[in-house]
Simulated scan of single mutants.
Amino acid sequence: MLVSHDIDEALKLGDHIAVFRQGRIVQCASPDELLAKPANEFVGSFVGQDRTLKRLLLVSAGDVTDQQPTLTVRESTSAAEAFATMDDHDIRAITVVDNAGKPLGFVKRREARNAAGRCADLLHPFRITGKAEDNLRVVLSKLYESNTSWMPIVDEEGRYNGEISQDYIADYLSSGRTRRVLNIHSDA
């Protein structure tokens, strides 16, 4: 147990944080839940107006990709089939994976429209990838450094875990979802 008046220190070190006011606990929660859902105005003020940005260090890319649909095609998939998938789901690009599920690149919807051949013929390599365990601060940094709006996220073996975008991050952070709510938080 650690007693601190420094919320940043508590967020870094604590598994659970109890916020006291006048000798009573007003909220006890995981760091992510405390930032995502302050119990009242006092707690919100204590954790700070930048609480959403503080969550960038607590939420992993995998937490966000787990909430998104995962659509992929293979190199051998026809351009027409890839286009139909992108058109059905109203997406601008689709990830191409190999037989082991590792991302090879992506195909653009506008290029697949009326194209003959396979996805391998239209493949654009990824400039960057992220890891499922990367926190959102690292992910956003990579996105901004490469001046791109989305990238694939891979697991420990390099297999495609999903994609992450600036919009997906904003949606996740503004939704109030937390790791605990998603049953990802471990009390071990």
Rank of each mutant, 00 (worst) to 15 (best):
A120Y: 00
S141F: 12
R159E: 05
F126Y: 13
F42E: 10
Y172P: 07
K102W: 07
L123Y: 03
R127T: 12
Q49E: 09
F126T: 00
N135Q: 04
V47F: 12
S45V: 06
Q68D: 04
L34W: 11
E163T: 14
Q49S: 10
T148G: 10
R137D: 13
R113D: 09
T148S: 09
D66R: 08
V139N: 10
L57G: 07
A39F: 02
V154L: 10
S30L: 02
D187K: 05
A36V: 04
V64N: 08
I169M: 11
F106A: 08
V138Y: 09
N114D: 10
D63Y: 05
S146Q: 11
A132M: 11
D98H: 08
T129M: 11
A120G: 11
S175M: 13
H124M: 06
H124V: 01
A61K: 11
T178W: 08
V181T: 08
E41I: 05
E9C: 08
P38A: 00
G117A: 09
N135W: 04
G101P: 14
P125D: 15
V26G: 00
R92H: 12
F106W: 13
R51E: 06
D90W: 07
L11M: 05
Q22T: 04
G162Y: 14
P103H: 06
T95C: 11
S175R: 14
E81W: 13
G14L: 09
G117P: 05
R118N: 09
S174M: 14
E111H: 11
K37D: 10
R179Q: 13
A79M: 05
F126S: 01
R24E: 14
R127G: 15
I184G: 00
M1A: 02
D66C: 00
N99W: 09
L143T: 06
K54L: 14
G162I: 13
E41Q: 09
G23P: 03
V107M: 03
K108W: 15
D88F: 13
Q22V: 01
G14I: 03
L140C: 12
G101I: 05
G62A: 09
V26A: 01
V97D: 02
D8M: 01
L11I: 14
E81V: 12
Y144I: 06
G117Q: 08
L71S: 04
L53N: 06
S165D: 11
A112D: 05
Q67G: 02
D90T: 03
N99C: 01
Y144D: 10
G105P: 11
L123I: 02
A116I: 07
V73Y: 05
N99L: 08
T148Q: 13
N183K: 11
D66T: 01
G14C: 04
S78F: 14
V3C: 03
K12M: 03
E33S: 09
V64R: 04
L13T: 02
V181P: 00
L71Y: 13
D6V: 00
A170R: 15
V43I: 07
S76F: 00
A112C: 06
P125K: 15
G48D: 07
P103D: 03
R113I: 03
S76Q: 07
F42P: 03
L173D: 08
D32W: 05
Q68V: 07
I128Q: 08
I153L: 07
L58S: 02
M1G: 04
G23N: 01
G101F: 06
I17D: 10
T85R: 12
W150V: 09
H5R: 08
